[in-house]
Structures are given as structure tokens and as C-alpha cells.
Write a protein that binds this DNA or RNA. Sequence first.
DNA 1: CGATCTGTTATTGTATACAATAAAGGGTTC
DNA 2: GAACCCTTTATTGTATACAATAACAGATCG
Lengths: 237, 237
Amino acid sequence: MHMDRASQGRDVPYLPIADSHRMSGASDTAYTAIRSYLLSGNAPPGSQLTEDRLSEISGVSRTPVREAVRQLESEMLLVRSESKRIFVADWSRDDIDEMFTLRQMLEGHAAERAAKLLGPADIEQLERVNEELHQAVDQDPPDVVRFLDANRIFHEIITNAARSPRLAQVLAMLVEQPVVLRTARQYSVEDLRQSARDHDELIAAFKAHDAAWAKSVMGSHLRRAFHTFADAASDAD
Amino acid sequence: MHMDRASQGRDVPYLPIADSHRMSGASDTAYTAIRSYLLSGNAPPGSQLTEDRLSEISGVSRTPVREAVRQLESEMLLVRSESKRIFVADWSRDDIDEMFTLRQMLEGHAAERAAKLLGPADIEQLERVNEELHQAVDQDPPDVVRFLDANRIFHEIITNAARSPRLAQVLAMLVEQPVVLRTARQYSVEDLRQSARDHDELIAAFKAHDAAWAKSVMGSHLRRAFHTFADAASDAD
DNA sequence: CGATCTGTTATTGTATACAATAAAGGGTTC
DNA sequence: GAACCCTTTATTGTATACAATAACAGATCG
């Protein structure tokens, strides 16, 4: 076991425990700017984007733009043509369905593991975050952005509690806030309340350290989220 | 000259149906070269690599190297330190376990869907590929590389049959051939034979369009693969 | 007309120089 | 001699010029 090249002592590789977006400086700028642009609605699904254009939008050169594009591609907000040109992704209803199905599977698994691994302090944190979420819903009008923030953190705590770096990484790709945001905009107050109650039940399952219960609640929670969206979307559009 | 909207007509975005590695030219070269290098055993887990070094190894400039590194990072063959330096990943037994657990979940799901979606022609293709795999095992000595090729194709057919681009993309990240290769080198001939028999049973499940059966077989298939590796590894090292 | 060929333009890919940052080393002070 | 600061070096990040390739458009020929 002679580590002939492994003579570094100080700067040790760190475990990627779901720190989704760790790009530095300009790359990060590009990522955030492009993402906002895609979310803003000014980018029609299916329309072409060029690196130069994205470079203008984000104010950095093409090099960091390319990195951001790669990331957004892996999150499927951008897609490429056969000749590598860049297009705004067009999520069909089936795509959303698929995304929620995969999330159900993976976050269900995370909830199972979390039920075994979460300590009292973690559960208290979940309760605090969910209290925040309740408050956001009970505001008049409900604060959807605040709700989504709390919701994201709630799910992230569970994902991280599963202590599975690969699971966390894969989920980071799948949990696309723009999509979730569009979804949540369709939510009625009742839907948001039900979501909060799901979280309450999830916490109860965690307190009981009942993995099967936690998985099951997570499953229906995400599945309902999909249908709420799908129904609202077909009504609206 | 403001084609701000979706005015492109010809070059339409294509669906990413599991065409894992679509880098072009130099990026592809870099990816392949670095991957081989990591697999060759000359790169001790935990050792540092620099972009310059990888540039020398692959014979292309740092720009495509960086893209390849990003890819290999997402496949967790490389990891970064807090200060963004690059290191050869060190897969613990738990990491491998985790990887197989996620594969079991996702490929089990793929098998379920495939059972419903596979047509007679697809099933014939699976049979042909598995025949190839049988032959590789029955050679004396067994041809592990040929076995792995057939094995990879077999699983890819199933993954693609599920018609779930996101599932395919996520699995492409998880199914790391280097790891699988190290695994397979530990296989005894009996292990390889059992693997081939699993595939036979999978095909039977597909012919019966029995989703639950297919999922179950896929589950034990992958779970056994993990234990075979884990046992052999703890014996050997 | 319609297809095809060809030059032109648009877009992505690659190399390279330079900037920013972090690590390593070495000397000074207490 | 241990902690601190400063200089030097190693490494990654960014911009930009240029190369390669694919789409576009106009001309040519059947």
C-alpha cells in the first residue's frame, strides 16, 4: 500500500453531503443568472439559446457559461440538439410525472433511512422548519416563496440525514425548484395546508423511528404534489 | 434580426434516451484517457491530480480536461477538496453498498416498466445479448471483458426500454464500469454463471410481462452482485 | 420547379495566456 | 521551538482568440 503520490496531508477531499451548487465566482453567477432567466418566463420552451447570448445575459465570458450550461443540462432545464446547440427544455406532463415518480422512490428511501438515523436534535430542527412553513401558509395571503424555502430545507434535512452522498447528489439533480415553483403556484391554500400536515405526520413517523411509515407518508406526499399540479395545470391552461 | 422567440425550425432538440457519453473530440479523448488511467491502478485512491497532469495524460489542453473532470466528478470517480483540488475517489465498502442499493431501486423500477413496454423484438435482442454473455462465461478461461460488455448492453436495453430519460440519466451516473470491473474481477466462474442465469430469469419475466417478477429478479441480481464483491474483496485484501 | 452544390454565417469546441486563490516554505520574534 | 507573517509556488478560474463544424441561403443545373 505505498501511496506514492498520495503524500498530501492537509487538504483532504471532503464528502459531498448534498452541497448542490458549489460553483465559484463567475460560474456561479452564470448559473444563477441563466436559471433565473429560464424561470422568468422570457425563455419560451423549445427556443434556442447560444453561449454568446447567455454570456451577455449573465455578464461573464463563455467559459463559465459553458460550465453553468452543463449543470443546467444535467438538471434538464436545458437540452441540446443533435448538433450540440442549446435549447430551453420543454417539460411535458409525462416528464413531470416521471420526475415525481423518481423523487418518490428516492426520497421515500431517504425517509426510511432518516427514520433510523435522525436524532432528537434533528427532529427538533425539522419541527422548527415546519413551524415556519405552517406560518407561511397561515399568512394572508400565504407566502409561497417562504413556503417553498421552508419546504426545500425540510426535504434537504431528510435527504442529508440519510447519509448517502450519491442519493443526495442524484436528488439534487431531480429536485428542480423552477418546476416545483411552477407547481406550487398552482396550489390552493388547502393544498399547502395538506402539505404541512404531511410534514407533521412525517415528523411523527420519525419520532417513532418507523421507517415504513415515513416512507409511506413521503410517497403519498410527493404523489399528491404531482396530482395537485397536474389537475391545476390542466384546468388553467 | 431579433429571433428572440422560437424561430428555429430544422434543428430540433432531441430526447436524451441514455446516450451516456456524448462529448465530442478532445473532451471525449480526455474523458476516456482519464477514466482508463483511474482504472489502471496507477492512481492511488486519495491521491491528488492536477488539471495539468491530466492534460499531459490525455494529450489535450486543460479546457476539455476540465469538462471530463466534471463528468468524472458526477460519476464520483474523482472528488474535490474544499479548495477545489482534484483527488482520486476512495470508494469504501459502504460506498459500494450504497451504489448497489440505489441501482437496485432504480433498475428494479426500470425492469418493472420494461416488463410492460418491451416488445417481442426487444426481448429477442436481450436473448441475443445474453447468449453472447453465456458464451463469454463458458470460454476457458472466461472472457471477463466480453462478459462485462454484454452485461452492460443487457442492462442498458432494459433501462432504455423504461422510456424514462431522467431515470436513464441518473443510472448512467451510478453505473460505474470501473467499479463494476473491479467487482467482476473478483467473480468466480460460478458467480458469472449465476449472473447469466439471473438474466435468463429476467427474460422469462419479460416474456410473461410480469412486472413484479422482473423487479424482484433485478433486485436479487444486483444485491447478490454486491455481496459477491464484498465477500471476495474482504477475502482478497 | 426542385434538388443539390457551394460559399457564407452562426455556433460550439479547443488552446492558451493571464488572473485569482490557496498551499507551502522560510525566516523572524517572543 | 512554536506561532506568526511574508514571499514564493502550485493550482484552479476566467477571458479571449482561433479552429472546427453545422446550419443557412443563394446560385446552378437537371
